[in-house]
Amino acid sequence: MPAPSHNSGDDIVQSLVADKSHDSAVDESMLYFAAVTDGPEIANIANKRKGLGVGAWLSIIWLALLLTSSFAAPFLPIPDPINDVELPRSGGGEAVVIATPPSLDHLFGLDSSGHDVLSRVIWGARNSLLIGIVSVGLGLLVGGVLGNIAGYFKGKIGGFIGSVLDILLAFPQLILALFVVTVLGHTVANVTFALAIVSTPVLARIARASALSWSEREFVLAARAQGATHRRVIWREVLPNVLPAMFSIALLGIAVVIVAEAGLAIIGAGVKPEVVTWGNIIVGGQGELRGAAHIVLAPSLIIFLTVLSLNFLGDVVRARSDVRESAL
C-alpha cells in the first residue's frame, strides 16, 4: 500500500536526479528548478532542448555514408576486391608481393594480393553490417517478444522464460557461437544465426526488466481494469514504452556484434576467408602487420568509428526517449 505522499519538491528532486543524472545536458540547477515548480511543462524543458547536437549528426552522417556506399558497392567505380588481379610480374615470372601503403590512387593502399583495401573495406561493410543488423534484429524480435511476455506475466510464464534466459546467458557466449558455426558451416547466414542466438538472451533480459517496471505502472492496471485483453495491454500499453529503450540497446548491440564478427574471424570461427568481411580483412593482414600495417589499421579504424557512432547514437536515442513523466 503506498504511503500517503505529497507532490513536493524534495520528491521530485530525488526522482529527477535519479532519472537524469546521466544526462549532462540537464544541469543540476534545472533539476532544482523543475523540482520546485511542479509544472510538467517546466520539467519538460529538458526534453525540448535544442536539436540533436554535433556528435549525433556526425554519427548519423558516418553511418549513412557507410550504409549507402556498402549498398552501392557493385556500382561504385572501385576495383574488384576478391578476384585475382593482374599482378605485375618480375622478370622471372614470379608475382611480386606488393602490399603498397596508401597513396592517392589507393587511399587505403593495396593488400598483399594486390587488392584495393578501400574497396575491400566497402565490400566488407556489406557483410559485416548485414551480420550486425540482421542478427541483432532477430535477437530484438525474439528477445523482445520473450522479454515482454516474461515481464508482463510475472507468474509461472515469466518464471519459466526467465529461467531459460538465465541458462542461455550462463553459456559461454564465444563457445556457443563457435559451436554453432563449426557445426553448421562458415557461411554469412550461419554466423548471423550464431550471433543472433548469443544476442537474444541479452536483449530479452533487458526487455524483461523494462517490461517488468512498466507493467507495475498504474496505467497498465487501469487498462486491465477497463477490460483490455492481455494482448492489447502488452501491445498498446507496455510495448510502446519498452521499445525506445530496446532500440537504443539494439544500436549498441549492433556495435558489439560487428566487433564479435571480427573476433570470430580471428579465432577462425567466422565466415570463410573467401568472403570479404571486416573481420576477414583484418585476419588477412595479420601476417603483415610489421611491413604493411595499413591492411589491418584501415578496417580497424572503420570499425572503431562505426562502433563509436552506434554507441553515441544509442545514447542519444535513450536520452531522448526518456519521457519526462517519470520526473513527476
Binding site: 519538491g9 543540476e28 540547477s29 523540482a35 515548480t37 511542479d38 509544472g39
Partner: peptide
C-alpha cells in the same frame, strides 16, 4: 504554500544547499 511557491527553495537557499551553477 503550494508546489511552486518557492518554500522549499527558500529553506535550501538560506542553508546554502543549492547547487552553485546557474543559480
Amino acid at each position: 504554500g503550494e508546489s511552486g511557491s518557492g518554500k522549499t527553495v527558500l529553506a535550501r537557499s538560506i542553508m546554502g544547499l543549492l547547487p552553485k551553477s546557474n543559480v
